[in-house]
Amino acid sequence: MSIDIDEVKKIAKLACLNVDEADIQSYATNLSNILDLVAQMNAVDTTGVTPMSHPFDVVQRLREDVVTDFNRREDFMALAPETEDGLYLVPKVLE
């Protein structure tokens, strides 16, 4: 399985990652190698095998709908790069 430069750019866009132009070829090579490794799976017939997403195949545990936490808005917002009046600031989206 070979990943070319255009595909690397497409994947980077999907993953919302800026990748330096100079590094794209090495990503293409490494990602291709990893997918070659992964391709060993294709040698096995898995027809009828139930996919396993969790070691115990358990269902989500539910809890009582009660208050378990308190409001710490100021503590949490203090961690943000930019805030104003209790809001997170990001670059302008609408002109």
Binding site: I11, A15, L31, L35
Partner: peptide
């Protein structure tokens, strides 16, 4: 680098 590589593999296999 390694984190970006794995994120990209993940984004690819889930696409």
């Amino acid at each position: 680098e390694e984190v970006k590589r794995r994120i990209m593999i993940g984004a690819y296999v889930l696409s």
